[in-house]
Amino acid sequence: MCWVKLVCTQKALAEGLATVERAVPTKSPLPVLSNVLLQTDERRLKLVANNLEMAISAWVAANVAEEGAVTLPARLLGDFVASLGGGDIQMEIKPGTRTMHLACGRFEANINGIDADDFPAAPAVGDGSRCRIAAKTLRTAITQVVFAAAADETRPVLSGVLVTIDGSELTMAAADGFRLAVRAVSLADPVAEKLTLLAPARTLNELARIIPDSEDPVEITATHNRNQVVFQFPASDSGRAPTLLVVGRLIEGQFPDYQRIIPQSYQTRVVVPVSDLLQATKTASVFSRDNSNIVRISATPSGDELVPGRVDVLASSAEMGDNAGQLDGSVEGDAVQIAFNGRYLREALEAVHSGEVALEITSPTSPGLVKPLAGPGHLHVIMPMHVAR
């Protein structure tokens, strides 16, 4: 065991531990995976957690007196550090032991650990294409698609998000067999080689939660054998040392050709304010939750260009009652009635960050297309629900 001796602030250590703890497994056959790796890295302390599907590394500023590494129980260490009232924490391990002594103000603790050599090694990053994208943009794109991935792993490829980086565009797509979400964003610097990655939705979810709300770039690349994806913040060419590194194991398999299910035409197009349709959908969902989450939308054109069309959002329950909400909107084409899963429609609308949204319908039995009016490259396809008339 190497000698470890350093001082860092309670606040910085607590924040770093809270970040990496997201990769600590709830149960693991390997005791060391329930630990967090503490490793000195020049004038910083590196924290790493790894569940073999995802690894998260965070760096904390520290005054390092002696270099070394050890793993300590993640939950115990995190809870203890979080309970302290602030100030500096002194941390020290003497040679020949695996016990970390921590002192902060008038509080002290001794925590037994496991040798750092037993902790999984970090993967080697490949030399291929590297994509750089603003952290804020990446986080927004993730939150606009990741919810559409399948929650179970019956079909593993649908539990992931397809990330395609080609030229000066990054596209994310997720589908669970009942809906599809697609988001494309432009890159300031085009990549020389196309990169296609099928990343677990869980990994991207955690990345979106911990990535800073910053215009500084995140670097995306793959490992040498292309079985893991690496997200580094800030990017390696930023001139600054990394503060966050997320590595996720990629999913094997072929993601469906989602372009084939995106409707290319419509018979009816409804344009309404996002907030109005979202509110009506949430209200209808109060009644639809006892009826398979069925929310019906009826759109009727006015026949007069100066008069808005009528959009009704309906839900009913045989035991509880029914609900109807009426909206004004632009209705182009034929009158139509269609039913959707209320949760799918609500989540699609919550991901739209613009004032108005378009709902394009081909027929009551065909997929509906939801897309914001402002900004291309963002859409949701929702399969209809069949209801008795």
Rank of each mutant, 00 (worst) to 15 (best):
residue 319 E to F: 07
residue 8 C to R: 10
residue 342 G to C: 04
residue 219 E to F: 00
residue 86 G to T: 04
residue 365 T to E: 11
residue 212 P to M: 08
residue 133 I to T: 13
residue 291 N to A: 14
residue 165 I to Y: 09
residue 249 R to C: 02
residue 52 L to D: 01
residue 299 A to Q: 07
residue 301 P to A: 05
residue 316 S to Y: 01
residue 47 L to W: 14
residue 2 C to W: 08
residue 79 D to Q: 12
residue 251 I to C: 12
residue 30 L to M: 13
residue 21 E to N: 03
residue 119 F to M: 01
residue 59 W to D: 00
residue 169 E to M: 12
residue 85 G to H: 12
residue 281 T to D: 11
residue 189 D to H: 03
residue 388 A to V: 11
residue 36 V to M: 05
residue 74 A to W: 02
residue 296 R to N: 05
residue 21 E to Y: 01
residue 372 P to C: 04
residue 78 G to N: 14
residue 376 P to Y: 14
residue 60 V to Y: 03
residue 192 A to H: 12
residue 21 E to W: 06
residue 37 L to P: 06
residue 284 A to G: 14
residue 302 S to F: 15
residue 205 N to W: 14
residue 386 H to K: 09
residue 198 L to V: 12
residue 81 V to P: 00
residue 253 G to S: 10
residue 332 E to R: 15
residue 302 S to N: 04
residue 363 S to I: 11
residue 164 T to L: 10
residue 293 N to Y: 10
residue 165 I to S: 15
residue 269 R to M: 03
residue 362 T to F: 10
residue 304 D to W: 13
residue 284 A to K: 09
residue 189 D to F: 05
residue 228 Q to G: 02
residue 157 V to H: 02
residue 244 L to W: 06
residue 257 D to V: 09
residue 179 R to F: 04
residue 272 V to L: 15
residue 75 R to Y: 08
residue 3 W to F: 13
residue 185 V to D: 15
residue 190 P to E: 12
residue 59 W to Q: 08
residue 377 G to W: 08
residue 43 R to E: 04
residue 229 V to F: 11
residue 42 E to I: 02
residue 26 T to Q: 13
residue 70 V to C: 02
residue 19 T to V: 07
residue 230 V to P: 02
residue 194 K to A: 15
residue 304 D to V: 09
residue 74 A to M: 14
residue 389 R to V: 05
residue 162 L to Q: 12
residue 346 R to M: 00
residue 255 F to A: 01
residue 110 N to P: 04
residue 301 P to N: 00
residue 75 R to A: 07
residue 129 S to V: 12
residue 297 I to G: 03
residue 1 M to S: 09
residue 341 N to R: 03
residue 313 V to I: 15
residue 313 V to R: 02
residue 369 L to Q: 05
residue 202 R to Y: 06
residue 84 L to G: 13
residue 220 I to M: 07
residue 30 L to W: 03
residue 253 G to R: 02
residue 206 E to K: 07
residue 335 A to C: 04
residue 272 V to W: 05
residue 111 I to R: 00
residue 41 D to H: 06
residue 108 E to H: 08
residue 375 G to P: 05
residue 65 A to S: 13
residue 15 E to T: 00
residue 373 L to W: 04
residue 59 W to V: 14
residue 262 I to N: 10
residue 320 M to R: 15
residue 317 S to P: 04
residue 96 G to N: 03
residue 119 F to K: 13
residue 204 L to T: 13
residue 20 V to N: 15
residue 151 A to G: 00
residue 117 D to G: 00
residue 66 E to Q: 11
residue 23 A to N: 11
residue 55 A to Y: 04
residue 219 E to I: 00
residue 126 G to N: 05
residue 385 M to R: 02
residue 227 N to H: 07
residue 293 N to G: 10
residue 238 S to K: 03
residue 197 L to M: 15
residue 92 E to P: 01
residue 322 D to M: 14
residue 31 P to D: 11
residue 182 V to C: 10
residue 303 G to W: 08
residue 249 R to K: 11
residue 63 N to W: 01
residue 33 L to R: 15
residue 179 R to P: 07
residue 151 A to K: 13
residue 9 T to A: 14
residue 201 A to R: 04
residue 173 A to R: 10
residue 54 M to I: 02
residue 310 R to F: 06
residue 335 A to G: 08
residue 272 V to H: 13
residue 234 P to E: 06
residue 273 P to A: 14
residue 191 V to F: 06
residue 372 P to N: 01
residue 153 E to P: 04
residue 328 D to Y: 02
residue 216 D to R: 14
residue 320 M to V: 15
residue 28 S to D: 06
residue 46 K to C: 00
residue 204 L to D: 13
residue 226 R to C: 09
